[in-house]
Design a protein around this nucleic acid. Structure first.
Length: 677
DNA sequence: GCCTGTTGTCATGCT
DNA sequence: CCAGCATGACAACAG
């Protein structure tokens, strides 16, 4: 990708840490009670907060706070809201992390519903509450279990015997117990985050919707509370190099032996986001955001192996990681197996890795002995759900290239904080990644040798899914189309790897065709493969766009519905007040009729007014000023009435708009009290 | 066996 | 004219 083309290139810089930083700062401000402009009273307890934060998280607060411009407003919440339920929600508003226990989940749910807290219901309560109320029964997810078993089989098939305990068949606990990765591998058969450590009974869980690299250290929990959270299963799960490999195909091209290059790549990326749109190549867009955990937590420049692995781990989506990688699950497992024993992982979760607070019991400290085996299946399921619930669309779309039109959408911050993960273009060629293209193909090959030695596959993560899929599936299905394609590959006997065809740029492709002097059959085959590959990617993009479109439209519908509801409420309210005013006026009208003569100007004016087609809002010219008194005021009122109640309603440009009812009430009252002479 | 969702492919139109 | 891309339609496949 060249950035100095003849045409003007448009670059987008989007900081993925900014929003998190803002949230952290707000939380800090709240802790110090700085700039707090609202006090929320719940059960005689007061919570200082920022109205903007509350209003942005809760419909209830939005409604209550946006109608008041008064500083230092005090909002007393009704009895429905309890401290037990409100406090975690307030915390959530500022940290995107929801702490809950089996005991208070219902209360939180009730308060969240009452307050209209967003981004919580579907993802959390609908699943958690039934699970918890079931009393921790066994999992009924037979399907999922069998699926896991199936993939376990796959995993075992490629696991080297040394990875397993020959007696129990279980994965052997790594030597260096205590490291995150090893803990994970010991528990999960290094398969997927689904098998992340389950939730301990009666321990507080933390639902983390914060952006990547949340500053765990900045968040303190009470003693005895275990910070089990999505950090364990989700984006912050410390993992291995495999994780980044899955997220970014180009990272995957380097193994631990290429850490230096990886580090430089990440350091380059780590400056923040990378969203680039190159127009002169027909808008080849790419967005790669590799963000560090904020300056306090981690200096990019000082990334060590452990840190880097942590970074990579943080990129890990919570769903089945096998789906994220162009490699099939078997390959993924193989990759992980190969990496789990890497020596440079030992620093994770220890010493200076500030992402894990040593004061808290974190994932890194959980050994199979002290926690994993004691947790119920339900809690495991809950943990899985927490992981899945917030990235429902991640796994299915992650391997799709970035649609250009979704860049802006992602930057709007809607939905998951990990939307940007979807924008990693796993189908792009390494040369298209300005930050990673330095990783040479040689490095790729040698490094893949390390990680993929078990499979003995030449698949590049950059290769077309078609190839990866065919390799994984055609073993059992000999007559599939891809096998036919394979046969054709052998028939035409290409002088270069077939996966290159679809990944290389057009220029490189043409040069290669020129260089290799292919036969017509080879040429036809190569072009056919390239066309199909491109079309496949295009179809994926197209479908992704469709889904995005549906997603955004659904959001619009939701928004419009709520607007409509609000408008209807307003209308009803206006109707009621109008009715009140009408009643008042009718009373006034009666007294007016008796007090003033039918020939009086005011009465005539009012008669004209009620009989005219005056719009509901009329233009109010300067009316009887309260500062005036006596005859002056009466004269002024008369003038005003005559001015504003002509045969047709006048249009002006400066006066304030008021409802006719209010206007009439004010002015008629003044007229009645001080009848004009 | 049917249904549904996913994915690859082809055809077609547009740029 | 060609290549690339978007998209509808269809088929195969898996769950």
């Amino acid at each position: 990708m060249s950035v100095d083309g003849p045409r003007t290139s448009v670059f987008t810089f989007q900081s993925a840490v900014h929003s998190h930083h803002v949230l952290c700062s707000l939380e800090e401000l709240r802790q110090k009670e700085l700039l707090c402009d609202v006090t929320v009273e719940v059960e005689r307890r007061s919570f200082r907060a920022h109205s903007s934060v509350l209003a942005s998280c809760s419909h209830y607060f939005y409604t209550r706070l946006t109608n008041h411009s008064r500083p230092n407003l005090t909002v007393s919440l009704p009895d429905e809201v309890t401290v037990e339920g409100f406090e975690p929600l307030l915390q959530f508003a500022y940290t995107a992390k929801l702490h809950f226990t089996k005991e208070n989940i219902l209360e939180i749910h009730r308060c969240a519903e009452f307050l209209g807290f967003q981004n919580l219901d579907k993802a959390c309560f609908e699943f958690l509450i039934p699970k918890f109320s079931d009393g921790g029964g066994t999992s009924k997810k037979v399907k999922g279990k069998s699926k896991n078993q199936a993939s376990n089989k796959k995993s075992q098939a490629i696991n080297s015997p040394s990875d397993q305990n020959p007696e129990t068949g279980e994965d052997r606990v790594p030597q260096d117990a205590g490291t995150v990765m090893q803990a994970a591998s010991a528990t999960s058969s290094v398969e997927s985050p689904k098998d992340c450590p389950p939730i301990p009974n009666d321990k507080e869980m933390q639902l983390d919707l914060s952006p990547l690299y949340a500053r765990s250290s900045s968040y303190h929990m009470g003693d005895g509370q275990e910070q089990f959270c999505l950090q364990n299963c989700g984006p912050q799960l410390p993992s291995s190099s495999m994780v980044a490999s899955e997220v970014c195909p180009f990272l995957s091209t380097s193994s631990t032996s290429d850490n230096e290059k990886l580090h430089s790549a990440v350091a380059t990326c780590g400056a923040d986001i990378l969203a680039m749109e190159e127009q002169f190549q027909k808008e080849l867009a790419m967005e790669v955001r590799c963000e560090p955990p904020t300056d306090k937590d981690l200096s990019i420049a000082s990334i060590t192996d452990g840190h880097f692995d942590q970074l990579e781990g943080s990129l890990m989506p919570p769903t089945d990681c096998s789906q994220l990688c162009p490699l099939n699950s078997v390959e993924s497992n193989g990759v992980l197996d190969g990496i789990s024993g890497a020596p440079d992982l030992s620093s994770i979760g220890t010493d200076d890795n500030q992402v894990f607070d040593s004061n808290k019991q974190t994932f890194s400290e959980l050994t199979p002995k002290d926690g994993f085996t004691e947790r119920s299946v339900v809690e495991r399921e809950v943990a899985e759900h927490l992981a899945k619930g917030f990235w429902p669309d991640l796994s299915s779309t992650l391997n799709e290239p970035l649609p250009l039109d979704s860049i802006d959408q992602s930057s709007t911050g809607n939905g998951s904080d990990f939307h940007w993960l979807k924008h990693l273009d796993l189908g792009a060629a390494p040369d298209d990644c300005p930050f990673l293209r330095d990783l040479s193909s040689n490095d790729r090959q040698t490094s893949m040798g390390n990680t993929l030695s078990n499979e003995d596959t030449g698949d590049s993560p950059c290769m077309s899914p078609i190839n990866s899929r065919e390799n994984s599936e055609c073993e059992s299905d000999g007559d599939c189309a891809q096998c036919g394609s394979n046969e054709q590959v052998q028939e035409v006997d290409l002088p270069f790897p077939v996966e290159q065809i679809s990944t290389m740029t057009r220029r490189a492709f043409l040069q290669m065709l020129k260089r290799e002097k292919l036969t017509p059959e080879q040429l036809e085959f190569v072009q056919d493969v390239r066309r199909r590959s491109k079309n496949r990617v295009a179809a994926q993009r197209c479908r992704k766009r469709k889904l995005d479109c549906i997603y955004w439209l659904e959001g619009d519908i939701k928004k419009l519905r709520s607007e409509k509801e609000k408008l209807l409420q307003d209308r009803n309210q206006l109707k009621l007040s109008l009715e009140d005013v009408r009643q008042n006026i009718s009373g006034l009208w009666q007294s007016l009729s008796t007090d003033i003569s039918p020939q009086s100007e005011q009465l005539q004016a009012l008669t004209r007014y009620f009989s005219s087609d005056c719009p509901t809002s009329i233009l109010l010219t300067p009316m009887a000023s309260p500062s005036l008194a006596g005859p002056d005021r009466d004269a002024h009122a008369n003038t005003s009435l005559n001015t504003i109640l002509p045969d047709t309603c006048p249009e002006g440009d400066t006066a304030a708009l008021r409802s006719p009812a209010a206007f009439l009430q004010d002015n008629v009252q003044s007229t009645v009290t001080d009848p004009a002479p």
